[in-house]
Design a protein around this nucleic acid. Structure first.
Lengths: 354, 354
DNA sequence: TCCCTGCGGGAAAGGGCTTTCACTGCGGTA
DNA sequence: TACCGCAGTGAAAGCCCTTTCCCGCAGGGA
């Protein structure tokens, strides 16, 4: 590969001058020399070695992002928001997929630190895992000590800037909606229980039911991967254990789509026989049939906020922005079926619900 | 940030020794010193500066990938394949989204070259654009001259290693299927006409119709963005111009989903009144309702092949691997409706089709 | 005429790391 | 006993670039 000195030699100038021309330095260079340098660059197809540049320049510019999986629409949307702000400010993004592996997450923090990123954004859910959290915080602290900025999206036990989707309220809204539609036998298709996202959403849901004097027994919850197949499998297991279910809450839209697939396979009409409600409102939600009722999170905005926090002024106080969840009624929810195959068992529940 | 010399000083050794311990060099170091270095690393939370390493080391390891948009399921699948092979061989991937902007594509080639990637993979479709193609080829040639490896996925006018999905046959398969089902009024929802992917698929489709003695008039083709909204809009325009259509071929699944949305909005039952066929068979295709009939492309495999080509031995002859397309029959296709609102006009067509 | 200013350019000092090369002891062979 | 080879370590060169510092020179004011 041609180097800067090659260019300089060919143009008959010093490397310093060549560098100035190429980078548009503020130091003036005569047109004569400028032309010669530019010509040499073109002839040699010169491209500066990015690593050498990054090493020589002092200021750090790129921003590191750790997500679970960019191809997951949830993160794709968040990333879109991150990108938008980053591009506006001329920052490059380095995006890493942890695939929900805490160890890989830790590794990526190091890797990005090694790449001298100006800031770090953790966009995946937090984990309920003491040891991991401690290690992560150590690494983040070390990074912040050397001037790095950190922001997290979602609930992590990290004391710093954060953007928090209101998962709890979202869960609550889903639960309340179903209660108001008269559902009592509600099953939950949940993501991995180690994720704070899962437990927060579940907590909100639980609270909504509790307000109606009900509880959410463990047998009505199935944990699985946060994806389509996870949702399909969990729904099947839920139905096998409890065929009377009249509603299913899926803790994200991918799982909801899986749930819909299972219900279709079992010929259970949605929403006549059973209602389904998702979470996130990813773009595809409106295109499944029936269009999915779900809890919307402002995903793109979450990305925008997080990047703004991290690129903005460093106001010593850690800032936490809570973004609201909102129910989007579409066609997978309806009133609870008047009776299922066996209406009798219903009587044993002395609910006071509306 | 702590540097290697900081570590060395703290451990009371030379930077050379510290480096050897940290990188697990083949040169032996006594346990005594090794321990001291490791301790210093831990205490200082030392992370090597990746740029300095990359600069000092001669061998290039990362691989650059340029796609249109990773969050598009088509590219997400391809990327999965690329990743798989890359991870297996301990290579890091740098993924860039061109968002179908040729200029950005060119910029990224430079950027990746600057980052000293060992190889470059162009995963997006080629463009029908002389000027662009020439520039791209110049840049790629320059890169290859300095030992870089290049592979493209899809039809680019680039003479080198390539993985080609058989778009033409795919289009042909879609057309033949529809003909066999008795469809005559077939509309096409196409992607940007500047993409070779679009034209290749269209060519195949055209050939299938021609074999039945029909042609594909321009008024039955609508070009739009290769996404859901593009598909929805194009379908609407197609229907407005020609309400008699009994089948629609969408040139990718996202567009097909948009088409389905428009048809639902207009209460045209699929496939009873109108058939739809997609292209790519992305994962969501089986989860829309009705499940989408489509042309499958081995997306993951395409990624695997491309990465293998580029990471494998450099057999001077450029290799071109053609991967087959395959029709996947699901529920959006059915026999052509016996009659539409006005059966009469049909008579004017003197088709000899089966 | 002399000095100062300021412009245009180059020399050289890093930036943090890897790796070659040279050096010091040591055990072993002739 | 003289020498060879090698394990273990450090000094220093080099990777490619940016940027500071300095120098020469031309022009303008005194």
């Amino acid at each position: 590969m041609a180097t800067l000195s090659d260019v300089a030699r060919r143009a008959g100038v010093s490397p310093a001058t060549a560098s100035r021309v190429i980078n548009g330095s503020s130091k003036p260079v005569t047109d004569e020399l400028r032309e010669r340098v530019l010509a040499a660059v073109a002839e040699l197809q010169y491209v500066p070695n990015a690593h050498a540049q990054l090493l020589a320049r002092s200021h750090r510019s790129a921003v590191g992002v750790i997500v679970h999986d960019v191809s997951d629409p949830y993160f794709a949307e968040i990333t879109r928001g991150l990108q938008r702000v980053a591009s506006d400010r001329g920052r490059l993004l380095m995006i890493c997929n942890s695939y929900r592996d805490p160890d890989r997450e830790l590794e990526y923090v190091e890797l990005l630190r090694g790449h001298q990123v100006a800031a770090l954004i953790l966009a995946g859910s937090g984990y309920h895992d003491e040891a991991f959290t401690r290690q992560l915080n150590e690494k983040l602290a070390a990074y912040e000590t050397t001037g790095g900025r950190v922001a997290v999206i979602g609930r992590h036990e990290h004391s710093g800037d954060a953007v928090m989707p209101d998962n709890r309220t979202g869960g609550y809204l889903a639960g309340r909606e179903l209660c108001e539609l008269g559902h009592r036998a509600i099953g939950v298709v949940a993501g991995p229980r180690i994720l704070t996202t899962t437990t927060d959403r579940l907590d909100g849901l639980r609270q909504a039911l509790r307000e109606q004097g009900r509880d959410l027994p463990d047998r009505r919850i199935r944990y699985a991967e946060f994806d389509r197949d996870g949702g399909a499998g969990a729904t099947a297991r839920l139905l096998d254990a409890d065929p009377e279910l009249t509603a299913i809450v899926a803790l994200n839209d991918s799982m909801a789509i899986g749930a819909l697939a299972t219900l279709r396979a079992r010929s259970l009409p949605v929403p006549q026989r059973i209602s389904v409600i998702g979470f996130d409102d990813m773009p595809i939600a409106r295109d499944v049939t029936p269009p999915l009722t779900t809890v919307r999170l402002p995903l793109v905005d979450m990305g925008v906020r997080a990047m703004s926090l991290v690129l903005g002024a460093d106001t010593l106080s850690p800032r936490v922005e809570m973004l609201p969840a909102e129910l989007v009624r579409r066609d997978t929810t309806g009133p609870a079926a008047q009776s299922t195959t066996r209406p009798a068992p219903r009587a044993r529940r002395a609910d006071t619900a509306s």
